[in-house]
Design a protein around this nucleic acid. Structure first.
Length: 214
DNA sequence: CATGGGATTGACT
DNA sequence: GTCAATCCCATGC
């Protein structure tokens, strides 16, 4: 990530949605008493059919076409709230879907909200992480630079993430575009893991665990 | 106004 | 691997 850009500022999001996506891996998503380190995202752009903005502006996608640095939250399959960070210039429909994260703070609250115990399964999916962090549809249009929902810069203590690319999942259109960005060293990435994450042998300690698992 | 389709998840065969 | 839950919205008549 460029040292000049900070996800707490709107300028961070006012550029190519793919660059924003790559740079958001490793950043910290915070809401209320919970926080988590982003380990998986996908980028969507109005020029490809998998994007909600493809068909042009609609009431539902108003935020998506608005200025960068705001949250686009929508209901998926009638059940789940999915969180995106709006990117690119005002008037362009593009956003980064936050797909998975590694819990940092408020882990017990996350367990309570999710109704499960395993650390790796609290935020390893787009619907799971919004449930764990208490992010609902009411946050659609929220300013990511002004809280209460915020994205903060990477914590140097965690080191730089090993970002690998893969094909986006869960969609039926434009399935070949390699616009999924994952931290290959995190066990909290949603399944299926990208091929690059399963085969790379140089990454530890994941590679050791993968070898043991066969 | 009726219908169909999801940027998902969890339970089940 | 399959499948239903559940609801907003876009589309078509």
């Amino acid at each position: 990530m460029s040292a000049a850009l900070d996800p707490c500022e709107h300028a961070f999001y006012a550029r190519s949605v793919h660059d924003v996506a790559r740079d958001l891996v490793g950043c910290v998503l915070r809401h209320g008493d919970t926080a988590a380190r982003i380990v998986e995202v996908e980028s969507y752009h109005q020029e490809e059919p998998a994007c909600h903005a493809f068909i042009g502006p609609r009431p539902r996608t108003e935020v998506l076409f608005g200025p960068p640095g705001y949250a686009y939250v929508y209901r998926s399959y009638g059940i789940h709230a999915l969180l995106n960070a709006v990117a690119e210039q005002d008037g362009v429909g593009a956003a980064v879907l936050i797909r998975a994260a590694e819990p940092l703070e408020g882990v017990d609250l996350m367990r309570e909200r999710r109704g499960i115990e395993p650390f790796e399964e609290l935020c390893n999916g787009p619907g799971k992480l919004t449930q764990a962090l208490g992010i609902g549809l009411g946050l659609n249009g929220a300013d990511l630079a002004a809280g209460p929902l915020a994205i903060e810069a990477r914590d140097p203590a965690h080191g730089a993430p090993a970002v690998v690319l893969g094909e986006r999942i869960g969609i039926t259109k434009a399935v070949d575009l390699p616009w999924r960005f994952c931290d290959a060293r995190s066990r909290c990435v949603s399944r299926p893991w990208p091929a690059a994450m399963r085969s790379v042998a140089a990454l530890s300690p994941l590679s050791a665990a993968a070898s043991r698992a066969g």
